[in-house]
Amino acid sequence: MSETDRGHHDIGGDPAGPVPRAEHALAPWEKEVDAIRYVLGQKGLMSADKLRLGIEQMPAEDYRRLSYYERWLASIAWTMEKDGVIPPGSFAARVAELEAKR
């Protein structure tokens, strides 16, 4: 397997700049996404492996662009649709509906 075959998440050992040390207090929505994953995990619907699979299969640009919990959100929504827990396309549709109410 050549270096270029590695997934976008497989970055151990890569060169990189200084570790950014600023820490932010989690926003309510970030805590909510963390909690949704945990509760779904307890119910056997969203293991840590599935969470990672969803994150590792997203386009590399998204992986780099999205924040940590944005990646989680995308992965959980994708997985729930793929596994038929929620209807296909329902996540994007609901986001659009709620956006229209802002």
């Binding site: 929505w29 970030e30 827990v85």
Partner: peptide, 14 residues
């Protein structure tokens, strides 16, 4: 934010 709306959307659907 759009992300907050995303979290709400997911919770509502589930």
């Amino acid at each position: 934010s759009r992300s907050a709306i995303g979290a709400r959307a997911l919770r509502e659907l589930l």
